[in-house]
Nucleic acid binder design. Sequence first.
DNA 1: TGAAAATTCTATAGACCTATAGGTGAAATC
DNA 2: GATTTCACCTATAGGTCTATAGAATTTTCA
Lengths: 209, 209
Amino acid sequence: MTKKSSKTSHPRRRSAAILDAAAEVFAARGFHGASTQDIADVLGIKQASLYYYFPSKEVALEEVCLRGAEGHLERAVSIAAAPDTARDKIGRLIEAHLSPLLDRRAYVRTFLNERQYLPTESRQRIGRVSRAYEKLIEDVLKSGIRSGEFRHDLDCRLAALGLLALVNAVAAWYGKEPKASLDRIVAEFARLYLGGVGGTRSAGPRAKR
Amino acid sequence: MTKKSSKTSHPRRRSAAILDAAAEVFAARGFHGASTQDIADVLGIKQASLYYYFPSKEVALEEVCLRGAEGHLERAVSIAAAPDTARDKIGRLIEAHLSPLLDRRAYVRTFLNERQYLPTESRQRIGRVSRAYEKLIEDVLKSGIRSGEFRHDLDCRLAALGLLALVNAVAAWYGKEPKASLDRIVAEFARLYLGGVGGTRSAGPRAKR
DNA sequence: TGAAAATTCTATAGACCTATAGGTGAAATC
DNA sequence: GATTTCACCTATAGGTCTATAGAATTTTCA
């Protein structure tokens, strides 16, 4: 057998490549549908060699999910804390939520679809973060109601779940929709969420009826 | 396609219970995470006994997915063909899309999350139906633009994907959100999609209250 | 250069999983 | 009452999968 794959110097590099491969395979075939053999094949190494980098497949999933979720809450917190209008905040939340798709799509997809298969402890930890994220969105919506930007009868819980539904779905088809750049998706979904499908009100700065 | 040979007087009953169990287990643990043993445990029978009802686990998935998707396109076609406003049609599409959650939630969830693991042929068949469904939504949106109900600059493709994102996400948390009955979700999401989060009313025909 | 560290290999245990073969008792049918 | 059909059973073949042990190779660096 010819061994031509270059082993680079930096340990971080190789570890990152291993994790990239795991993320790709988990995203493509699902955690249970993916074998460690599949991951090794992507890297051109033997299956058992993977265990030099992680102690179990489950731990690999944990690390992939961690990276897939990384920074989301922090970015959202800093957006929510800014002195902007609620409408602006929603737009920035959408953009911040989707931006990791540019460079970590497989991680994000794995986080969204496979986190349910994490071992109990890390699944619960991630669950708490997710709930904090949802609550933060609800709070932005509530502040928008108080400021008069949003409807007074808005159901903030359902509206928050609706926003997450919109943005999380993008991971499933981003890259397959030929005409849809991330910027375009961000703009269109922000407008859809803020103004709906109907109405003739102008885009950009909000127009009161 | 090969359907199981009919039994005697009440042939459907037991078969249906078997399929229910498969749907529940597939929905809860994913196709690859679910073993035939898990399904048998739910039914209180031995693992091998399942093979009296289906010839393979994959075929069981096919039948579950089929029932999960059943009727969706047909209902949507008949809604789109009616002489209603586009706004009304969107509302009815949302309601029709979500109604199977009342009595077939596990089937719908399995269809949404596990259909990617179907064997090539049935996966492609289902893919064609899905695309027809998406196109139908796009067409309703286009008609709404022509009638002046919707914005002229609406991106119908993205808006259709957005609608599907909204309604498909419900399957993931319906039943866990204490305050959210299906009717409430339908009403709130219809309003959200048609009018957005902001504004108290929009131009054109108004949504019902 | 030569020792130490990093990386990958071979080989395999052992758990689990799907699916098949053939048997059993009860119910339905003739 | 005999026969067929139904709905399960036992037993197991045969495959795949995770993970471990320890050897071999390559890279780093003193």
